[in-house]
Simulated scan of single mutants.
Amino acid sequence: MIQVHVDEKEIKKLYQDAIEKRLNELDQEKVFWDSSDLKRRTSMSWNTIQDTFFHDKRFPKVKVGSKWFYPAKEAEAFLIQWMEERR
């Protein structure tokens, strides 16, 4: 007779890792971020974003109607450079 033992914690971790990987892949497909995406990605409040880098002329942004949009790849590159400048 064959017995199989399953480590439920390991299965849960594998499942969570697979979901996180897929969510990251979907995030990478975005062309633009909105302000909610920007706040989530920087872990900053809207006031902190405005006080720190929002008004930097190098920060890529476009206002469409009353809503701000940020080209995803360019905004990410700017944020990495901006953070490096603060080290």
Rank of each mutant, 00 (worst) to 15 (best):
S45T: 15
V6R: 08
S36P: 00
A72W: 13
K73R: 15
D27N: 01
D56W: 08
Q28Y: 03
S36V: 01
E85P: 03
K30I: 00
R41M: 13
E76C: 09
F54G: 07
I19Y: 06
P71W: 09
Q16A: 11
D56S: 04
L23C: 04
D34Q: 03
T52R: 15
K61R: 15
K13E: 07
K63P: 12
F69S: 11
Q28L: 07
I49S: 05
S45G: 13
D51W: 12
A75P: 05
V6I: 15
D27G: 00
F53T: 00
R40A: 13
M1F: 08
Q50S: 12
Y15T: 09
V6W: 05
S45F: 12
I19F: 06
V62Q: 15
R41D: 03
M83I: 12
I80M: 05
E20L: 09
I19V: 13
V4R: 06
D27I: 00
W33C: 02
F54W: 04
E85K: 13
S36C: 05
L79M: 06
D37L: 04
A72I: 09
F78E: 11
D7Q: 06
R86K: 14
G65Q: 14
D34K: 01
W82S: 01
K67M: 10
S35T: 00
E29Y: 00
E25P: 00
T48D: 10
Y70P: 02
Y15I: 04
E76H: 07
V31T: 13
T48Y: 13
I19Q: 09
M44P: 00
V62S: 15
R40Y: 10
D7P: 02
H5D: 06
S43T: 04
E10D: 07
S66K: 15
D17G: 02
I11E: 10
A18T: 12
K61P: 03
K30R: 05
K13G: 02
S66L: 14
A18D: 10
R41W: 12
E10Y: 04
G65C: 12
V64A: 14
V64H: 14
I2Q: 07
Q81E: 14
S66A: 15
K9E: 10
A72E: 11
V6Y: 09
L26R: 01
L26F: 01
W33Y: 11
F54D: 03
E76P: 03
N47D: 14
I2A: 07
E10N: 06
D51L: 12
N47V: 06
D34G: 05
M83W: 11
E74N: 11
T42Q: 04
D56N: 09
E84L: 14
N24F: 05
R58E: 15
A75C: 13
R58L: 15
P71I: 10
R22Q: 12
T52K: 14
Q81W: 10
K73H: 13
L38K: 01
K61D: 09
E84C: 09
M1N: 06
M44Q: 02
Q50M: 14
Y70D: 08
E85Y: 07
F54T: 03
N24D: 06
K30W: 00
D34C: 05
T42A: 07
G65P: 06
H55D: 14
S43D: 13
I11S: 04
K12V: 04
R40F: 11
K13F: 05
D37S: 05
L26Q: 01
Q3P: 02
E20A: 14
Q50K: 15
D7A: 06
Q81C: 04
E10A: 13
A75R: 08
W82Y: 11
